[in-house]
């Protein structure tokens, strides 16, 4: 499989399929399902943003919950305290905060510690952010921020009232589709290919003139700021922001989506997030097993299907195809 020839038609038809599916939901399902569907869309961004750093640049972070929480708190605080600000500015501020946190974490740790060590450091930084959130008065301490209203977007001529009906849901779908497309461009273009080189063989990449520290840092900052954007979009959807968002256990979510769907595929985390959403819905009556479900599922995937669902499908397809087209080998 070459990475130098990208076929946008395939990506855009899959994305259109996902968006179409999401748009049907409010017409056929109840409010609970619509809420869950919005969360899944945000989780798709959460998962892919993680995987952009993980699969493409080889950066394992256990701190993505902190980026999400920082984005959510930033939006929550600005909406409740500074509600004269346009929503777009609030989103940009959230992305900026997430990016800044990623930049600081990366500058502190990325160059010195790789792989496992970096992961532990992100966990420690995440714990620090969690403590701070729980102790800062203006962030509502243990209770978090409540009354995070859905905003009105003023476009000059028309006003979009996102508080009305399912308006905010459609806003989520549109903005998530946009973010996914943005990440797909970063994944597929020259930048993505050079990241892949950095992950594949840092020494070789460096002797192609690639500044590998800088590339990794950029990947982490992109991942952090897009994750923070997902958090900022989430805040008015849930209308409440709590410290649980920054808890270490929440950082397992993007990992689970990624590994469940297949980290080698751009849309792997999307598939994982959707599957997990379905599973979460199916087990909603079993209170108190969510940790067991997330942990057990992640463990099972790592142990038995390391390629994820898409990897499994891919190898099954290859096995089905192999005997029927023996000519492929001869055509070198």
């Amino acid at each position: 499989m070459t990475i130098a020839r990208v076929r946008p038609a395939i990506f855009f038809s899959l994305l259109a399929l996902l968006v179409a599916g999401a748009l049907i939901v409010p017409h056929v399902a109840n409010r609970g399902v619509v809420f869950l569907s919005g969360v899944v869309a945000i989780n798709v961004v959460f998962g892919i943003a993680f995987n952009l750093a993980f699969a493409k640049a080889g950066i394992l972070s256990f701190g993505n919950a902190m980026f999400f929480a920082v984005g959510a708190y930033c939006a929550g605080y600005l909406i409740t305290q500074q509600n004269h600000l346009p929503f777009v500015v609030i989103l940009l501020a959230a992305a900026g905060c997430g990016g800044l946190l990623a930049l600081v974490t990366g500058l502190l740790a990325l160059r010195r510690a790789s792989g496992v060590y970096f992961a532990v450091i992100t966990l420690a930084v995440g714990a620090l952010v969690h403590v701070l959130i729980m102790k800062l008065n203006f962030l509502g301490r243990n209770d978090g921020l409540v009354g995070v209203n859905r905003p009105i977007i003023d476009l000059g001529l028309v006003e979009l009232d996102l508080a009305r009906g399912d308006a905010y849901y459609y806003f989520i779908i549109a903005s998530c589709a946009l973010l996914v497309t943005l990440m797909w461009v970063l994944w597929s273009n020259r930048f993505g290919r050079s990241l892949q080189g950095v992950k594949s063989d840092p020494m070789r990449a460096s002797f192609l003139g690639i500044d590998i520290d800088r590339k990794r840092l950029i990947a982490l900052v992109l991942s952090g700021s897009i994750t923070a954007l997902a958090g900022a979009i989430y805040a008015p959807w849930a209308q409440i922001v709590t410290p649980e968002l920054a808890h270490w256990s929440f950082s397992t979510m993007p990992l689970l989506f990624t590994l469940l769907g297949g980290s080698a595929f751009f849309l792997g985390p999307a598939v994982g997030a959707i599957l997990f959403g379905l599973l979460d819905y199916a087990t909603r009556s079993l209170i108190g097993i969510s940790d067991l479900l997330v942990g057990g599922l992640l463990l099972a995937v790592v142990l038995s299907v390391p390629g994820g669902v898409l990897g499994l499908l891919g190898s099954l397809l290859a096995r089905v195809r192999a005997p029927s087209s023996p000519r492929r080998e001869g055509r070198a």
Binding site: T2, R193, Q196, G197, D201, R204, L208, I210
Partner: peptide
Amino acid sequence: ARVFLEMTALDNIIVAVEAREAT
């Protein structure tokens, strides 16, 4: 030899050419 093992031979060179262009 250090090359990008999971990439095809052509992609390896393309990444190198692109690295030069990016500089």
